[in-house]
Protein backbone atom coordinates (compact mmCIF):
# COMPACT_ATOMS: atom_id res chain seq x y z
CA UNK A 1 0.00 0.00 0.00
CA UNK A 2 1.15 3.40 -0.79
CA UNK A 3 2.20 5.79 1.86
CA UNK A 4 0.71 8.83 0.21
CA UNK A 5 -2.09 10.35 2.09
CA UNK A 6 -4.17 12.16 -0.53
CA UNK A 7 -7.72 11.32 -1.52
CA UNK A 8 -8.32 7.63 -2.44
CA UNK A 9 -9.55 7.38 -6.06
CA UNK A 10 -9.42 3.66 -6.72
CA UNK A 11 -7.62 0.38 -6.34
CA UNK A 12 -5.31 -1.19 -8.91
CA UNK A 13 -4.40 -4.87 -9.17
CA UNK A 14 -1.85 -6.50 -11.44
CA UNK A 15 -2.24 -10.04 -12.75
CA UNK A 16 0.29 -12.45 -14.13
CA UNK A 17 -1.20 -13.08 -17.56
CA UNK A 18 -4.26 -12.42 -19.77
CA UNK A 19 -6.01 -15.61 -18.58
CA UNK A 20 -5.77 -14.54 -14.92
CA UNK A 21 -7.00 -11.08 -15.85
CA UNK A 22 -9.99 -12.49 -17.72
CA UNK A 23 -10.84 -14.59 -14.67
CA UNK A 24 -10.60 -11.51 -12.45
CA UNK A 25 -12.71 -9.42 -14.82
CA UNK A 26 -15.44 -12.09 -14.91
CA UNK A 27 -15.41 -12.24 -11.10
CA UNK A 28 -15.82 -8.44 -10.88
CA UNK A 29 -18.64 -8.61 -13.42
CA UNK A 30 -20.39 -11.38 -11.49
CA UNK A 31 -19.98 -9.45 -8.23
CA UNK A 32 -21.82 -6.53 -9.80
CA UNK A 33 -19.00 -4.03 -10.07
CA UNK A 34 -19.70 -1.19 -12.50
CA UNK A 35 -16.81 1.27 -12.62
CA UNK A 36 -13.83 -0.90 -13.39
CA UNK A 37 -11.61 -1.25 -16.41
CA UNK A 38 -8.86 -3.56 -17.64
CA UNK A 39 -5.54 -2.40 -19.07
CA UNK A 40 -3.42 -4.68 -21.26
CA UNK A 41 -0.49 -4.19 -23.65
CA UNK A 42 -2.50 -5.80 -26.49
CA UNK A 43 -6.15 -6.65 -27.24
CA UNK A 44 -7.25 -9.73 -25.31
CA UNK A 45 -9.88 -11.94 -26.95
CA UNK A 46 -12.96 -12.50 -24.85
CA UNK A 47 -12.30 -9.49 -22.61
CA UNK A 48 -15.51 -7.73 -23.65
CA UNK A 49 -17.53 -10.75 -22.60
CA UNK A 50 -15.55 -11.20 -19.38
CA UNK A 51 -16.15 -7.58 -18.40
CA UNK A 52 -19.82 -7.80 -19.35
CA UNK A 53 -19.54 -5.02 -21.92
CA UNK A 54 -22.38 -4.64 -24.38
CA UNK A 55 -21.74 -4.15 -28.10
CA UNK A 56 -20.65 -0.61 -28.85
CA UNK A 57 -23.30 1.76 -30.15
CA UNK A 58 -20.68 3.45 -32.30
CA UNK A 59 -21.91 1.67 -35.45
CA UNK A 60 -25.28 3.39 -35.21
CA UNK A 61 -23.63 6.78 -34.78
CA UNK A 62 -21.50 6.14 -37.87
CA UNK A 63 -24.53 4.93 -39.83
CA UNK A 64 -26.68 7.91 -38.97
CA UNK A 65 -23.86 10.38 -39.65
CA UNK A 66 -23.23 8.69 -43.01
CA UNK A 67 -26.89 8.99 -43.98
CA UNK A 68 -26.90 12.65 -42.89
CA UNK A 69 -23.77 13.30 -44.95
CA UNK A 70 -25.18 11.65 -48.05
CA UNK A 71 -28.61 13.26 -47.93
CA UNK A 72 -27.13 16.60 -46.90
CA UNK A 73 -24.72 16.46 -49.81
CA UNK A 74 -27.52 15.74 -52.24
CA UNK A 75 -29.70 18.50 -50.82
CA UNK A 76 -26.83 20.98 -50.95
CA UNK A 77 -26.08 20.27 -54.60
CA UNK A 78 -29.74 20.36 -55.57
CA UNK A 79 -30.15 23.74 -53.90
CA UNK A 80 -26.94 25.17 -55.40
CA UNK A 81 -27.24 23.83 -58.96
CA UNK A 82 -30.99 23.68 -59.51
CA UNK A 83 -32.45 26.38 -57.25
CA UNK A 84 -30.13 29.13 -56.15
CA UNK A 85 -27.78 29.45 -59.10
CA UNK A 86 -28.87 27.28 -62.03
CA UNK A 87 -26.14 26.90 -64.65
CA UNK A 88 -26.17 24.76 -67.76
CA UNK A 89 -23.06 22.59 -67.63
CA UNK A 90 -22.24 20.61 -70.79
CA UNK A 91 -25.90 20.33 -71.67
CA UNK A 92 -26.84 18.35 -68.59
CA UNK A 93 -30.04 18.98 -66.61
CA UNK A 94 -29.75 21.29 -63.60
CA UNK A 95 -30.43 18.38 -61.29
CA UNK A 96 -28.37 15.54 -62.74
CA UNK A 97 -27.84 12.73 -60.29
CA UNK A 98 -24.75 11.04 -61.84
CA UNK A 99 -22.79 14.27 -61.54
CA UNK A 100 -23.79 14.62 -57.88
CA UNK A 101 -22.88 11.09 -56.82
CA UNK A 102 -19.15 11.76 -56.17
CA UNK A 103 -19.92 14.61 -53.74
CA UNK A 104 -22.68 12.56 -52.09
CA UNK A 105 -20.22 9.69 -51.70
CA UNK A 106 -17.45 11.87 -50.29
CA UNK A 107 -19.73 13.63 -47.81
CA UNK A 108 -21.12 10.27 -46.69
CA UNK A 109 -17.59 9.07 -46.00
CA UNK A 110 -16.54 12.34 -44.37
CA UNK A 111 -19.44 12.59 -41.94
CA UNK A 112 -19.33 8.86 -41.20
CA UNK A 113 -15.63 9.19 -40.29
CA UNK A 114 -16.36 12.21 -38.12
CA UNK A 115 -19.04 10.12 -36.45
CA UNK A 116 -16.54 7.31 -35.92
CA UNK A 117 -13.76 9.47 -34.47
CA UNK A 118 -15.79 11.86 -32.33
CA UNK A 119 -18.31 9.19 -31.39
CA UNK A 120 -15.40 7.06 -30.17
CA UNK A 121 -14.16 10.03 -28.14
CA UNK A 122 -17.58 10.46 -26.63
CA UNK A 123 -18.02 6.81 -25.64
CA UNK A 124 -14.46 6.67 -24.26
CA UNK A 125 -14.96 9.97 -22.42
CA UNK A 126 -12.11 11.54 -24.32
CA UNK A 127 -10.30 13.85 -24.41
CA UNK A 128 -9.33 13.91 -20.76
CA UNK A 129 -6.08 15.08 -19.29
CA UNK A 130 -5.70 12.69 -16.41
CA UNK A 131 -6.95 9.39 -15.07
CA UNK A 132 -6.62 7.89 -11.58
CA UNK A 133 -4.56 4.93 -12.82
CA UNK A 134 -1.69 7.28 -13.63
CA UNK A 135 -1.12 7.81 -9.90
CA UNK A 136 0.55 4.41 -9.96
CA UNK A 137 4.23 4.24 -10.93
CA UNK A 138 3.86 0.60 -11.79
CA UNK A 139 1.04 1.27 -14.25
CA UNK A 140 3.48 2.10 -17.09
CA UNK A 141 3.92 -1.67 -17.41
CA UNK A 142 0.46 -1.75 -19.02
CA UNK A 143 2.12 -0.80 -22.31
CA UNK A 144 4.74 -3.53 -21.92
CA UNK A 145 4.02 -6.67 -19.91
CA UNK A 146 1.52 -5.74 -17.20
CA UNK A 147 -2.10 -6.88 -17.03
CA UNK A 148 -4.06 -4.54 -14.80
CA UNK A 149 -7.55 -4.06 -13.54
CA UNK A 150 -8.64 -1.00 -11.60
CA UNK A 151 -11.82 -0.38 -9.60
CA UNK A 152 -12.59 3.28 -9.33
CA UNK A 153 -13.78 4.93 -6.15
CA UNK A 154 -16.99 5.97 -7.89
CA UNK A 155 -18.14 2.34 -7.88
CA UNK A 156 -20.89 1.80 -5.29
CA UNK A 157 -19.14 -1.33 -4.05
CA UNK A 158 -15.76 0.35 -3.72
CA UNK A 159 -14.16 -0.56 -0.43
CA UNK A 160 -10.35 -0.61 -0.28
CA UNK A 161 -10.20 -3.34 2.31
CA UNK A 162 -12.76 -5.71 0.81
CA UNK A 163 -11.63 -5.14 -2.77
CA UNK A 164 -8.06 -5.90 -1.81
CA UNK A 165 -9.13 -9.21 -0.30
CA UNK A 166 -11.14 -10.02 -3.43
CA UNK A 167 -8.12 -9.30 -5.65
CA UNK A 168 -5.92 -11.41 -3.40
CA UNK A 169 -8.31 -14.35 -3.63
CA UNK A 170 -8.26 -13.97 -7.44
CA UNK A 171 -4.49 -14.26 -7.46
CA UNK A 172 -3.33 -10.72 -8.05
CA UNK A 173 0.45 -10.42 -8.01
CA UNK A 174 0.44 -6.79 -6.91
CA UNK A 175 -2.22 -4.55 -5.41
CA UNK A 176 -2.01 -0.86 -4.73
CA UNK A 177 -4.29 1.91 -3.66
CA UNK A 178 -4.66 4.77 -6.12
CA UNK A 179 -4.27 7.96 -4.17
CA UNK A 180 -3.94 11.54 -5.16
CA UNK A 181 -0.68 13.16 -4.21
CA UNK A 182 -0.87 15.01 -0.94
CA UNK A 183 -2.19 18.48 -1.42
CA UNK A 184 -0.21 21.28 0.05
CA UNK A 185 -2.68 22.93 2.32
CA UNK A 186 -1.89 26.58 2.61
CA UNK A 187 -2.50 27.83 6.06
CA UNK A 188 -4.99 30.58 6.03
CA UNK A 189 -3.67 33.67 7.66
CA UNK A 190 -5.18 33.97 11.02
CA UNK A 191 -6.70 37.32 11.62
CA UNK A 192 -5.10 39.02 14.47
CA UNK A 193 -7.64 40.19 16.81
CA UNK A 194 -6.98 42.66 19.38
Amino acid sequence: MSNKNGKVVGILAEFENPAALIKAASALRDNGFKDFDCYTPFPVHGMDRAMGLKRSKLGFVVGIMGLLGGSGGLLMQWWMSAVDYPLIISGKPFFSLPAFIPVVFELTVLLASFGAVFGMWHFNRLPRLHHPVFYSERFSKATDDGFFVAIEASDPQFDAQKNEELFKSLGAVHIELLQEDEQEVKEEPVLQTA
Binding site: S90, K92, P98, A99, I101, P102
Partner: peptide, 10 residues
Protein backbone atom coordinates in the same frame (compact mmCIF):
# COMPACT_ATOMS: atom_id res chain seq x y z
CA UNK B 1 -18.78 0.50 -62.39
CA UNK B 2 -19.83 4.05 -61.58
CA UNK B 3 -16.39 5.47 -62.34
CA UNK B 4 -16.59 3.90 -65.79
CA UNK B 5 -20.11 5.15 -66.35
CA UNK B 6 -19.75 8.68 -65.03
CA UNK B 7 -16.67 9.66 -67.03
CA UNK B 8 -18.26 8.41 -70.24
CA UNK B 9 -21.60 10.04 -69.43
CA UNK B 10 -20.03 13.38 -68.52
Amino acid sequence: AFSQFMLIWY
